[in-house]
Simulated assay, not measured.
Amino acid sequence: MRIFQNSGVYASYLPRLNRLANQEIEFRKRLQVFLDDSYGACHILKPPIELAPDVFFTNGDDEKLQKYWAAENGLPSSTSMEEILLSQIEHHRTEVFYNMDPMRYGSEFLRKLPGSVRKSIMWRAAPSGNVDFGAYDLIVCNFPIILESYRKHGWHAEYFAPAHDPAMDNYAANGNRSVDVLFVGGYSRHHRKRAEILEAVSELGKEFRVVYHLDRSRLTRLAESPIGWLPPLREHKRPKSIRAVSQQAIFGRDLYSAISQAKIVLNGAVDMAGPDRGNMRCWEALGCGAAMVSDAGNYPQGMVDGETMLTYDSARAAVSIIRDLLADRRHLQSVAAKGHSMIRTLYNKDAQWQQFNRLVEIA
């Protein structure tokens, strides 16, 4: 089975990738730098991670990466990103196209695929407005409510979860964790519930070592710039207590390293899937051996409140749970250990790959 997995990267991650790969001007070498950095590794299937010979992986929105491939394969410099991706699929003689960037490469793109492609599968774990995904044979993600919304359109949708990245285990083994509470993620006033939690927990920075690595929204960056005094921007400025514990956004192995230094990882959904939970930070926090404190909701199998993680239902509860955990080191270490054991066992890469093969059969 010849599988082609197309992924993508956040714009805010590209500067890091360009810095890490600044000496590499070949497709395969830049791709290897990306894979070695473990960005989004929980979503990358096992064969692409291992660069298996019959599998092709790329980031169809990484212009440098794609242009390298185009040049190496004799395509004109004016070739569009869509044309490059189609050429890669044709060159690879792809049988199963697994796309994790369907907002960029949607149904119209699928209608241009070469005849070798027998099955098309896409991952989408966020609301998508009125975008048409009907040309795909199967849509997958790990949020039941979002899957049901796809089925209401008459589309075939099935549950599929991220997997534990084995590279995390070395980070999980770290027993010297100097950061008491860590949060890594986006910050926007529009995510009111998350903003409320972050502000409440940031106050603990007066007593404990609290670190936030925030990927700020464009408006927040403007609000905290020299022009931030303008009235339309003031409301987007982060509270003083949050700014006091905040550092720059981090990605890839820097993210793993930061979690390995933390006793507790604070997590919070952004209300995109109702009560369903299971964002990437769950896999990363548990995978790198921290005790996860997250908002209450319907979690994937194995993520059990009071056993492999702890949940809160309000800002006050989040602060109280964190205080109690930091005061009871034995309980903290037990929750962290059980969480790590669960995620690396139940959600290992072999199990993910086997499940993907089953999904291909029913697509």
Score class of each variant (00 low, 15 high):
M1S: 07
V9S: 09
Y10C: 10
L14M: 15
L17D: 01
I25Y: 11
E26V: 06
E26L: 11
R28Y: 13
R28W: 15
Q32P: 02
S38C: 12
G40V: 06
A41R: 14
H43N: 11
I44Q: 08
P47E: 10
I49P: 01
F57N: 04
N59K: 08
E63P: 11
K64F: 13
A70R: 11
G74H: 14
S77V: 15
S77K: 13
S78V: 10
S87L: 11
Q88E: 15
E90D: 14
H92W: 04
E95N: 07
F97E: 10
N99D: 12
M100V: 01
D101E: 05
P102A: 01
Y105L: 15
L110V: 15
R118G: 06
R118C: 07
R124V: 07
A125S: 05
P127H: 03
S128F: 15
D132K: 09
F133G: 01
A135D: 15
I145K: 10
I145S: 12
I145D: 13
L147A: 03
H156K: 15
E158N: 02
D169H: 09
A172N: 05
N176D: 09
R177S: 04
D180K: 01
D180E: 13
G185C: 04
H191V: 06
R194P: 13
E196A: 04
I197F: 12
V201Q: 12
E207C: 00
F208Q: 08
Y212K: 09
L219A: 07
G228C: 14
G228T: 14
L230V: 02
L230S: 02
P232E: 13
R234N: 08
E235P: 05
R238P: 14
F251K: 02
A262N: 00
I264A: 01
L266H: 05
M272A: 04
A273R: 02
D276S: 05
D276V: 00
G278Q: 01
N279W: 05
C282R: 09
E284F: 00
A291W: 06
D295T: 04
A296C: 06
M303D: 07
G306E: 14
E307D: 11
Y312E: 04
R316C: 04
R316H: 08
A318W: 15
L326T: 01
R329G: 05
R330T: 15
R330C: 11
R330Q: 15
L332A: 02
A336I: 11
G339R: 01
S341I: 08
Y347D: 08
K349D: 10
Q352L: 03
V360M: 14
